[in-house]
Design a protein around this nucleic acid. Structure first.
Length: 211
DNA sequence: GACCAGGCACATC
DNA sequence: GATGTGCATGGT
């Protein structure tokens, strides 16, 4: 597969090396992190996750045992903490009610069904759903985020106003369907995005400079 | 003090 | 469908 998109992947992988995503100790922790990191720097999420772990191992049971106010206070550092507290509880309540609180059981559903179930939960949109599918359930779903859209549009691969679903279709049309590739590529795009592709770009030194 | 972060729901046209 | 606004802490 030799196209411009795959070239970007190789350049980034060569420059940064494997990213080892998602930074979490369990699929369950990936889900929690995916909700907490919405429009929020990961650094702030790490503190929240550390706080949550003081209440015991991260399980549906342990987190649902917490009063909502306690849960929200624990994740305060991740911002939007009242919303995110509700969103977490929404998800956990669904798991508890229908899957005995077990993520493994939930993940037995086929990918398309899983995605619709996730999108049906208040607080889980396309990026969060796809992050969960790729990084927690290991499904071949490409995660789009603001960095991805920015990088691809600034390199004229897609128009600036491309929607989430359009960008996702475009990318998956130009890559082999491979969980490990999707995992690594998205992680690399976020990494280079943080370094160089902010709203106000600083392109000097970017591995994709002049590409 | 601005600006920004690994979005989403909801109201409105 | 597309566009606008509130949500909120913490680092640069």
């Amino acid at each position: 597969m030799h196209n411009k998109l795959f070239d970007i992947y190789r350049i980034l992988l060569d420059h940064y090396g494997p990213r080892g995503w998602w930074p979490a100790q369990s699929p369950f922790e990936v889900v929690v992190g995916a909700i907490l990191t919405q429009n929020t720097a990961w650094q702030n999420v790490e503190k929240a996750i550390t706080n949550l772990k003081r209440f015991g191992p991260m399980t549906t049971e342990n987190l649902l045992r917490l009063p909502e106010a306690t849960l929200s206070e624990a994740i305060r550092s991740s911002g939007y903490y009242r919303q995110k507290g509700r969103r977490l509880r929404n998800f956990l309540g669904m798991l508890a009610d229908r899957f005995e609180g077990r993520l493994d059981s939930f993940f037995e559903l086929p990918t398309e069904v899983l995605r619709k179930e996730l999108l049906g939960l208040s607080g889980i949109g396309p990026e969060t759903a796809d992050s969960i599918l790729l990084y927690a359930a290991a499904r071949p779903v490409f995660v789009i985020d603001t960095y991805t859209l920015r990088i691809l549009s600034r390199h004229s691969l897609i128009p600036e106003e491309t929607s989430y679903s359009e960008a996702q279709r475009w990318i998956t049309d130009h890559l082999p369907e491979d969980v490990q590739l999707f995992n690594e590529f998205h992680a690399l795009l976020v990494t280079v995005g943080k370094d160089f592709c902010r709203p106000r770009p600083k392109c000097s030194g970017c591995p994709l400079e002049g590409f």
